[in-house]
């Protein structure tokens, strides 16, 4: 199965994760609800600046 990088924490995530979002026509995959919510709040921050580590760490 294809894996993706969680744009928030930088972890590797499978496509079967329940936490996904759509931004500018592209699907992003997350390891957790926290990562997804952090991304949804300000996607550009993570897309431009790269992964920042777990949002609650």
């Amino acid at each position: 199965m294809a894996t993706h990088i969680d744009p928030v924490c930088g972890m590797e995530v499978g496509e079967d994760t329940a936490f996904k979002t759509l931004y500018k026509g592209k699907v992003y995959y997350f390891c957790s609800r926290q990562c997804k919510e952090a991304f949804d709040k300000d996607p550009e921050r993570y897309l431009k600046g790269g992964p920042r580590g777990m949002p609650h760490h």
Binding site: A18, F19, K20
Partner: peptide, 19 residues
């Protein structure tokens, strides 16, 4: 292909090369 179900949004997929 590339089916994705997005919680609270819907689904996206590639069908016959179309998004």
């Amino acid at each position: 292909e590339e089916f994705n179900q997005l919680e609270g949004m819907g689904v996206v997929a590639v069908v016959n090369g179309r998004n």
